[in-house]
Design a binder for these strands. Structure first.
Length: 148
DNA sequence: ATTCTGACA
DNA sequence: TGTCAGCA
C-alpha cells in the first residue's frame, strides 16, 4: 500500500537510462542521504515522476552549479524542518536536526523528535518540499529570515 | 534479465 | 565512482 498503483513507477534501470547515469550512481545518492527511494515489498526501488525530477535537479546542481554531494547534503540540512513540523520546544532540544543542522533531518531518523520518529520521511512535507529545484531556493530564503 | 547488499586487486 | 560477488 506504500506504493500507489495509480501512478507509474519506474525501476532503477529505467531511470538510469533515462537520465544517462549509472544505476550505481542513483544508489549512491541514496546512501549519501540526498535522496530517499520508495521500495516495494521485495525491496526493489521504484521511482515516480517527482523522484526523477529530483534526480534531474541533483544532476543540474552537480554539473551546472558546481556542487558536490556534500554540498547538496548541506543545502538540504539548512532547511528549517523545525519550523515546518509541529515539534514542541523540548522535542527540539532533543533533535539532532534542530541542534546541529549538519545533515538532512531524515538522515538521523533514529534520533529525531516528535512525529518525525514514526513518520515516513518520503511522505513528510519537509522532504516533499526539498526535492524541488525551485522550491529549495525559497526554503533557504525562509531560513535566512527566521531567528533560529 | 534485473535488482539488491556489501566489499574493494 | 566503478565493479565483482552471490542471491532472490
Amino acid at each position: 500500500m506504500a506504493v500507489a498503483e495509480t501512478k507509474k513507477w519506474l525501476k532503477i534501470g529505467e531511470v538510469a537510462r533515462q537520465l544517462n547515469i549509472a544505476v550505481e550512481t542513483i544508489r549512491m545518492y541514496e546512501r549519501e542521504g540526498i535522496f530517499l527511494a520508495e521500495k516495494t515489498a521485495s525491496g526493489q526501488r521504484v521511482y515516480n515522476e517527482a523522484d526523477v525530477q529530483w534526480l534531474r535537479c541533483i544532476r543540474q546542481l552537480i554539473k551546472v552549479k558546481g556542487l558536490n554531494i556534500e554540498g547538496i547534503r548541506r543545502l538540504l540540512a539548512l532547511i528549517p524542518c523545525w519550523a515546518m513540523k509541529p515539534c514542541t520546544p523540548d522535542e527540539r532540544e532533543n533533535c539532532p536536526a534542530y541542534l546541529t543542522g549538519e545533515r538532512p533531518c531524515w538522515m538521523d531518523k533514529a534520533q529525531l523528535a516528535g512525529n518525525c520518529t514514526t513518520e515516513n520521511c518520503r511522505a513528510c512535507t519537509v522532504y516533499q518540499a526539498a526535492i524541488n529545484c525551485t522550491n529549495i531556493k525559497l526554503l533557504l530564503h525562509q531560513s535566512q529570515g527566521r531567528q533560529v
